[in-house]
Every structure is written in C-alpha cells, then in structure tokens.
C-alpha cells in the first residue's frame, strides 16, 4: 500500500565510525563478562573456604550489588544516552524502598 519504506544509506565515514564503536562495545562487554564470572567464582570460593559467616555474607552481597550495576550499565545499555529517565525512575524507586526498609529496621517497633 501507500506507506513508504524509508531507506537510510550510511556514508563510509559513518560506517567505519559505527564499526569502531561496536567493536569497542563488544570488547568492554567481553571484559565485563569475564569480570563477572571471576566475581562469581570468588563468591563460591568464599563460601567453600569456610570463612566466618560475618565475613562471607557481606562480601557476597557486595559482589552481588556490583554485578547488578555492571549488568545494568554494560549489558542493558544504561551508560548510553537517553536513559536519564530510566535511571531517575530506578534510583527513585530504590530510594523509596531503601527509606521504607530503613524505617522498619530503625524506628518502628512492630
């Protein structure tokens, strides 16, 4: 029917820029992937090694938080442009959840 299909041609400069950019992204994603595997290994090792639970639990939680951050920024593209509102909503939600939990563990008796 009458709806037109738009074809956008890339110039050679654009093409090589896009290629370089995606190469760079791919490299960083692979590095982060390796790093995350490494962190997972540390977590398993910490549990296996039989350290005190007071040491293992915070370490595992900390590594988990770092992994969530890496996941969001390197694999779910939050580091790229146009994600400001997404970040605002996520951090807003986290702040509200944090304050709610904080209220429960500090000032509420029940």
């Amino acid at each position: 029917m009458a709806h037109d299909i738009e074809i956008i041609e890339k110039t050679p400069a654009e093409y090589s820029y896009k290629k370089r950019r995606s190469d760079r992204l791919m490299r960083s994603q692979l590095m982060m992937f390796a790093l995350m595997i490494f962190m997972t290994l540390i977590s398993f090792a910490a549990v296996q090694a039989g350290f005190s639970a007071y040491f293992v639990v915070p370490v595992v939680l900390l590594l988990a938080a770092v992994q969530v951050g890496l996941q969001l920024y390197y694999f779910m593209h939050m580091s790229e442009k146009g994600h400001g509102l997404v970040a605002f909503f996520m951090y807003g939600g986290m702040l509200i959840a944090f304050l709610t939990v904080l209220a429960f563990v500090t000032i509420i008796w029940w």
Binding site: I96, T100, A103, I108, W109, W110
Partner: peptide, 24 residues
C-alpha cells in the same frame, strides 16, 4: 509524589509504633 511514600505510618499512630517513629 515523593513525600507521599514517606508518611504511611501516620495512619497507624495509635498502633504503638513508639515515640520516635510517631515523631518522625
């Protein structure tokens, strides 16, 4: 909108949350 999430316990003052919670 933001403050609306931080006041829920004012519906529960008489439940006995304690003076600190009630004051805050």
């Amino acid at each position: 909108g933001f403050l609306g999430f931080m006041v829920w316990a004012h519906h529960m003052f008489t439940v006995g949350l304690g003076p600190t919670a009630n004051a805050i």
